[in-house]
Design a protein around this nucleic acid. Sequence first.
DNA 1: TTTATCAATTGAAACATTTAAATATTCAAA
DNA 2: TTTGAATATTTAAATGTTTCAATTGATAAA
Lengths: 91, 91
Amino acid sequence: MDNKRIEKISRALSDANRITILQKFKKRKDCLYCSEVNEMLNLTQPAVSHHLKQLVDADLLISVKEGREIKYILNEKVLSEYVKSLGTLMD
Amino acid sequence: MDNKRIEKISRALSDANRITILQKFKKRKDCLYCSEVNEMLNLTQPAVSHHLKQLVDADLLISVKEGREIKYILNEKVLSEYVKSLGTLMD
DNA sequence: TTTATCAATTGAAACATTTAAATATTCAAA
DNA sequence: TTTGAATATTTAAATGTTTCAATTGATAAA
């Protein structure tokens, strides 16, 4: 993973609200709906939309349109590649 | 590691210059001097000082004063705790 | 003690991020 | 086809980041 990707993912992770969103995937089984994120964060809907976009743009989340709802899936592959890249700093 | 720590470390990692700095620790044995960072980044000295401060404030680097030079040591413990925290998102 | 060197701080400019309010878009259901 | 619900986009304000130029502070060497 190149430095630009690491930079982008790190930036996506550099916000407490977005970290909270990612953590919710553990409790809810494997996916989250946009409206669920709206309920759990004390933010306006546009702000939540913005945060989800950051996570999708960084490829940490995959968005799937389902009718008029949007389902988000954690992209474990990208997250694990990111973690692995940081791990090489310590080898 | 709590979300505020994760946020802070992620922010420190969200800049290509700072990622480059951390990567240099692999080539140079285990420590880097401020002047070496100045040479390898195409930035002014105050800009480099700023980036190093971000990394130190996030506890990713430890700074040690040696006469009028400053030696930086990679804080592998903190980096590995960070990586571990992100890993729990996938368990 | 004066001078030179290494690094931090300050100030200012350019740019990016976060947020809320208002508006727009998309799609399902009536 | 109109209405309503879910989500995105735009705009604007507040705040934070990055950078350089200039300055300051500290320490070593002359």
